[in-house]
Amino acid sequence: MSYAIQAEGLVKRYGNMVALDGVDLEVPVGKVIGVLGPNGAGKTTTVRILATLMRPDGGRATVGGYDVMKDPVRVRGLIGLTGQYASVDESLSGRENLVLLGRLLDMSKRNAKARAVELLERFELVDAADRPISTFSGGMRRRLDLAASLVGRPQVLYLDEPTTGLDPHARNEVWEVVRRLVADGTTVLLTTQYLEEADQLADRITVFDHGRVVAEGKPGELKRRVGGQTLQVRPTLASDLDEVGRILAELTGAAPARDLNTGLLTVPVADPMLVSALVRRLDGAGVAVDELGLRLPSLDEVFLALTGRPAEESKRNTQQNPIAERNVA
C-alpha cells in the first residue's frame, strides 16, 4: 500500500513543555484519517509539521514520499491547508483572494481567474464573490477557506478543526464538501475535537492525548476495542416492558437496564446472533416493538475508556480557553 503521509517518532518541545512525544502516523493514499483529541493534545502541532510550517525536534515525516524537512518545497506543492490558522486575507474579497493564490501558484492571469470562478461556483459563493469577507457568515468563511486551500488542486489536504465554531447546518455543508473531495481521490488528514465528525468522515481514527497516540484504528474497531455491543429494545406498549425485560434476561443472562422515560430496555450482549432469537421470541409472545437494534458504544465512551477522561470534559475546557492550543501548539 502506498502512503500519502508517513510520520515516525515526531517530537516537538516548547521549552520544558513536550507538545509531541513520539507520534507515528500513516495515511494511505486516498483515505481520510481523523486525528481526534482534546486541545493541547498535539493535533495542530502535528499538522504544522506535516505542512512544513514548523520543524520537529525529533523524528521524520514524508508527504507524498518527500521529506518535510529536506524537500519542503515539493511537499508544499502537494498539500492544501485549511483550518484555524491558514486563512484568507480579510481585506480582500473572496475572488481577489482566490485569484492571488492562483497567481502565486504560477497560473496565468486568465487561468487564475477561471479557477477562482470554478471554485466560487463549486462552493456556492458566486453572489458573495466580490463582497468584503467581513460580511460573510461563519459557514461561508469556512467554505472560502476550503476553496482557498484547493486552488492548486492539492493531493493531500489538511483540515485543522474545519468545523469548530460552526452551527450544525454549516457543519453539514463542510462535511459534504469533504466527502466530495475524498470521492475525487484526495487524501485528507482531519483534526477534530468532535467525535461525531471523525466517525462521520474518517476511514481511520487516531486518538491523541498529551502528545501521544493513544489509540488507532477504524471507527468500528475502536468502538469494539473499548467495549461490547448493547441490545436496545423499545416495546410499543409500556405494559409490555415487563414481558420484554423477562425475555431479554432469559436470552442474555443479565437484567436489562430500563429507561422509564423513553421506555427503552438496554442490555449488553456478547453474541450478535441473539438478535434473531429475540425477534422470534417477541413474535411468539405477540409483542410489538418500535425499536430494536444492536448499538456499538459511542466515540465519547471510546474516548473515556482510552484516555481516562470523558471527551465532553475536554471539549468544555476548550471552549473556556480557546487560546490554550494556539500558544502551545
Binding site: 505542512a51 512544513t52 510550517l53 518545497v73 515539493r74 508544499r76 506543492g77 498539500i79 491547508l81 484555524q84 490558522y85 491558514a86 486563512s87 484568507v88 486575507d89 480579510e90 493564490l101 502565486l104 501558484l105 482557498a148 486551500s149 492548486g152
Partner: peptide, 12 residues
C-alpha cells in the same frame, strides 16, 4: 494572521 501561514504552506 492566518494568511501568512497559508503563504508559508505554498510552494512559493
Amino acid at each position: 494572521t492566518g494568511v501568512f501561514d497559508r503563504f508559508r504552506s505554498m510552494p512559493i
